[in-house]
Nucleic acid binder design. Structure first.
Length: 478
RNA sequence: CGGGGUGUGGCUCAGCUUGGUAGAGCGCUUGGUUCGGGACCAAGAGGCCGCGAGUUCGAAUCUCGCCACUCCGACCA
């Protein structure tokens, strides 16, 4: 059976220092590197391959639902950014400005996009005239820039890669349905492809997006009990449409404002994958997005027939999984450690002893279980094991979240809980932002979301003691 | 932005207190022996000691300034 001994000693253990463990994993798994630009990272091939798999899965789903990809400029004129008041107030502190071009000072400075609502809106004002032009279901894959004060690879970088969907609809109901639909797309992606359980809910007014009427979120719990907002979906009402003068002639021949949404997921999700599934030996990847799903390690590869057999297996298995052979002259032990650090879900060992018996050894990354598999059964066994790894990861992550979710009635309860551990606290809230701020000050937790599931209970506010009926997840967040 | 820590071959660090021509391990290159959990032997390459001033006959070492990374806060939809 599996043993959980630490086999890789170049990575700080989680127990000892979770933050250091995280950066060790990012570096040792060769996901990203620091660049000469403060706060900006280099996505290395292995990390970028993960992002490509994420992109491909999401993009396919977006298109199934009727969305089209576009590319907007990366620069936004100041006048455009200024049009929606709440939006500019929210983002102004963290934008970078281009003030010179071609050696001359620009008449109007341009900001490097921190998000593209304003660009989409301006474009929409040109192309939406009739209800027949709706809905507009656009998405773009790009990078954005936000001048962050504190950065960490993937979790918070100044430039980050993401997709941003921007849609316009004839009615509020249709836009709200879109907002919910896309939140569900993200939640299903997290659970089915990334093996990360998430809580779907609505943000409080304090935490919602600048300019949005409502912000929906999926929140995941990391291995250390802290929360990570994994994706968001916003309903804008017609606020931007009014600010940007986007109007269409409706079915009743009156001028109307369309209703808008936006939704996004970023490379930050890679940070969530690392911190949800990783262990003391490094990264552990969910099979669906792992760049390599099965690594073949030949043992005693100089011996007659070993490499040939390894390559033959690669050819056979390539039809059903992403497979590689490591035929470098490093020792097998080195390779075992290497691919564990990189989180490859399955390792296949093939050596002279196996070839004699027409079998191989497969080791699961998530629990280190060693299984002898007859070569004839590989095509059946590999998909089964990949699914088992996915299910194992999901169950473990869910278990962690359940173990660390508590109920609280008072702020003292919350302080008591967080004195012992970190996690999610469910508590009723009256809806007053002052209470939310007080809670942050006295207990250090912020509201993560008002979950869709689990509302309906009535009681008193965890802060002020007045009647309350909003159930809120509270926690410490990345 | 406030508080702490760290910057020396690619990586991890020693050397700094007490100034005197730069070290180790790992990695890399070459050759040989190995190969079922990070192999071994031998030879070799590789460093404006983060940057800039200052003190000094002389600075990795002392002084001042700056920058970067990092941790904890604040801030961040």
């Amino acid at each position: 059976m599996a043993d959980n001994k630490k086999m890789v000693d170049e990575i700080t253990s989680m127990e000892e220092d979770f933050a250091k463990w995280y950066t060790d994993v990012v570096k040792k798994a060769e996901l990203a590197d620091y660049s000469s630009v403060k706060g900006c990272m280099i996505l290395r091939p292995y990390g970028y391959a993960m992002w490509e798999n994420i992109q491909h899965t999401l993009d396919t789903r977006f298109k199934e639902l009727g969305h089209e990809n576009v590319a907007m400029p990366m620069l936004i004129p100041e006048s455009l950014l200024q049009k929606e008041k709440d939006h500019v107030e929210g983002f102004a502190p963290e934008v970078a400005w281009v003030t010179y071009g071609g050696g001359e000072k620009l008449e109007e400075r341009l900001c490097i996009r921190p998000t593209s609502e304003t660009l989409f809106c301006e474009h929409y004002s040109h192309i939406i005239h009739s209800y027949r032009d709706l809905p507009k279901l656009y998405n773009q894959w790009c990078s954005v820039l936000r001048w962050e004060k504190t950065t960490r690879p993937f979790l918070r970088t100044m430039e980050f890669f993401w997709q941003e969907g921007h849609t316009m609809h004839e009615t509020a109901a249709e836009a709200i349905a879109e907002t919910e639909q896309m939140l569900n797309v993200y939640a299903e992606f997290c659970e089915n492809s990334l093996a990360i359980p998430v809580i779907k809910g609505k943000k409080t007014d304090k935490e919602k997006f600048a300019g949005a009427e409502a912000t929906y979120t999926i929140e995941a719990m990391m291995h250390d009990g802290k929360a990570l907002q994994s994706a968001t979906s916003h309903y804008f009402g017609d606020g931007f449409a009014r600010a940007f003068d986007i109007q269409f002639t409706g079915r009743d021949n009156t001028l109307q404002y369309p209703h808008q949404t936006s939704w996004g997921m970023s490379t930050r999700i890679i940070g969530a994958i690392i911190m949800t599934h990783g262990d003391d030996n490094g990264l552990v990847l969910p099979p669906a997005i792992a760049p390599v799903q099965l690594i073949i390690v030949p043992v005693a590869q100089h011996k007659e027939g070993v490499l040939e057999k390894a390559n033959e297996l690669r050819k056979r298995l390539s039809a059903i999984a992403r497979v590689k052979v490591d035929d470098s002259d490093n020792s097998p032990g080195w390779k075992f450690a290497q691919y564990e650090m990189k989180g490859v879900p399955l390792r296949l060992e093939i050596g002279p002893k196996d070839i004699e018996k027409d079998q191989c050894v497969i080791v699961r990354r998530d629990n280190r279980e060693k299984i002898f598999v007859p070569l004839a059964e590989l095509e059946a066994k590999v998909p089964e094991l990949l699914k088992a790894v996915h299910d194992g990861l999901y169950a473990k992550a869910l278990q962690n979240r359940e173990n660390r979710t508590w109920n609280a009635k008072t702020m003292d309860d919350i302080n008591e809980i967080f004195a012992k551990d970190t996690g999610f606290v469910k508590a009723l809230w009256c809806g007053d932002t002052a209470c939310e701020e007080m809670l942050k000050e006295k207990t250090g937790v912020s509201s993560r979301c008002m979950p869709f599931d689990g509302q309906g209970e009535k009681g008193v506010c965890v802060c002020c003691g007045k009647p309350a009926e909003k159930m809120v997840y509270w926690g410490k967040a990345y």
